[in-house]
Write a protein that binds this DNA or RNA. Sequence first.
DNA 1: TTGAAAGCGCTAACAC
DNA 2: GTGTTAGCGCTTTCAA
Lengths: 354, 354
Amino acid sequence: MSNAEEADGPRPRGRRPTMKDVAELCGVSIKTVSRVVNGQGGTSQETAARILQTIDELGFRPNRLASDLRHIGASSMIGIVIEDVSNPFYGSMIRAIEQRARERGMMVLSVSSEEDPQREHELVRELIARQVAGLIIVTASSDNSYLAEDIRRGLSVVFADRPSSGVQCDEVVLDDVRASREAVEHLLRHGHRRIGVVADADHVYTAHTRVQGYREALEAHGIALDPALVRQGSHTSEDATEATHALLDLPEPPTALFTTNNRSTAGALRAIHGRDAQVALVGFDDFEFADLLNPPVTVVWHDPAALGQLAADLLFARLENSHEPPRRIVIPSRLLVRGSALPRLAPNPPAAGA
Amino acid sequence: MSNAEEADGPRPRGRRPTMKDVAELCGVSIKTVSRVVNGQGGTSQETAARILQTIDELGFRPNRLASDLRHIGASSMIGIVIEDVSNPFYGSMIRAIEQRARERGMMVLSVSSEEDPQREHELVRELIARQVAGLIIVTASSDNSYLAEDIRRGLSVVFADRPSSGVQCDEVVLDDVRASREAVEHLLRHGHRRIGVVADADHVYTAHTRVQGYREALEAHGIALDPALVRQGSHTSEDATEATHALLDLPEPPTALFTTNNRSTAGALRAIHGRDAQVALVGFDDFEFADLLNPPVTVVWHDPAALGQLAADLLFARLENSHEPPRRIVIPSRLLVRGSALPRLAPNPPAAGA
DNA sequence: TTGAAAGCGCTAACAC
DNA sequence: GTGTTAGCGCTTTCAA
């Protein structure tokens, strides 16, 4: 038998030491090492001390993958599917989830769906392949039944920000319709009658629902909806800038805008700024610097960290007791009035050839 | 023998089906299933088709943890340690890394160190325990020798944004000193002589280095450094607001500020806004809305996505060829002049009792 | 083209 | 207190 490795001194170069190595060097069984490593007790002071010493000398690191492999379907990782990690909104959410996870010794695999249902599906597959104990999803899909099979097999899934469809799961959402209605009513109260909307694609739940709130507000005030004022399909902030320009270029441009998420708001503000147009605006999602802009931007405020935290709480509760009926939590949101809804001069249509 | 499970029909409720289940149902060996699952070829059309069919019927999902367990020290995950996921700066970085990782079928475990060296150390341990194939670290520590042992054993580590110390690793950094010097020189050129600094704690590399740039700029212009003007230790944007107020409350307040990261900038702007003070400002790190503020904020621009992307490139190169000497990449940065460095009225000391 | 057997590093059940 | 045995689900020789 070739024992080249054994003879390599206390600090082998290549292979990482395993419990077996520690056990052999200590002249104990691997199980005893396991007990010490996991602080399970049931070992004598002496043995424990000797093992700990050897662990230190050897630079032994436990292999969590191997241990996770034993606890089937319940690794020490949870998966998060969001739209885009670089969006601070989701960043705050992930941060909150990460904190909750850490309290339980778990780590977070987060992935960006890019608002693409197909991609979301693939990412979920890969997360499941890595045996995540549970999943928190901001779904980009209008049909989550692709999860049904795994859920039936015991996978815990929590939907955040947007509800599930086609499966029964815990969820944390906002009252998007009510919040949007309030936002638009705020503009109406300030005398605006032509209110433009800049929103993401209609198949995105939040975009659809928030436009729905806009519709309801107009209807409640007996104002006919002008389809030309509703620009859906702006995904990036650049898209939103373009959409806003288009709105302001209308023969009868809006005097106010309702923007349905932080990117739409950013894009619209940039467009307004670029043409020095005087347009009122209320945006969905608060953002840093909203209060420092001129005028300060009135927004539908809500707390993405709370969204993440509650989603994590639901998930961990579900992991401990999988037989409760699904819960739905609606987190608070409210209009944060800062001044940007004030009536302003309608922008002039751009002078031809100027 | 109790065979309750076997008799549960083609879609068992509890346990997830494994390769073994597929193999048994197909009457082939587990290895053949493995070959088909991994697209290795070497199986007949017929067998493959039958296996695929069974996989589908059973809802079999490969267990990546188990497969990763075999490829020792090279799982399909990489770890990222940053300061805080919710900071958009790191969000962009992570996003870029995630994209690169995905191209290679890898996923990202990202964790927040909260700028705490102790915590960073623990998080790295836990990432290693989960057998990450490699690590990208924005280190909060001034001594990374805790990694030496693992690196010697073959762990690939790339340092991003801040260099390593105590270990030899690939790194992607900025020329912080030069960039900061330019920023401060820009302020000097606009006639400012009393320039305040709002920075994170001195033990944070970027804070230290950027203050160093400030010092060098003053020195080059023969201006004595007034220690009262240098406020280090602001971690959150709230801290920075407080520090800025303190600076502006000085008997001889600064006429300009240099803020050394995006949170310092945000905090300082809020303080300035709050007291309607007229203070020039140049900030390190670009941020959304910098161009929409009044005045638009001049910043040291650089690309956090590029930082992430290059760090990922270095890491994957290292994973493929671990014997190259460590590389150091300096990514570009430049002053993005927007107007906020213009000389302004020195703020009045606050009237007592007003 | 296929399979048997060994084992990745660890844990659980049950001895002693 | 401690060890033995049998696996978690998969891959990897090596043989057929």
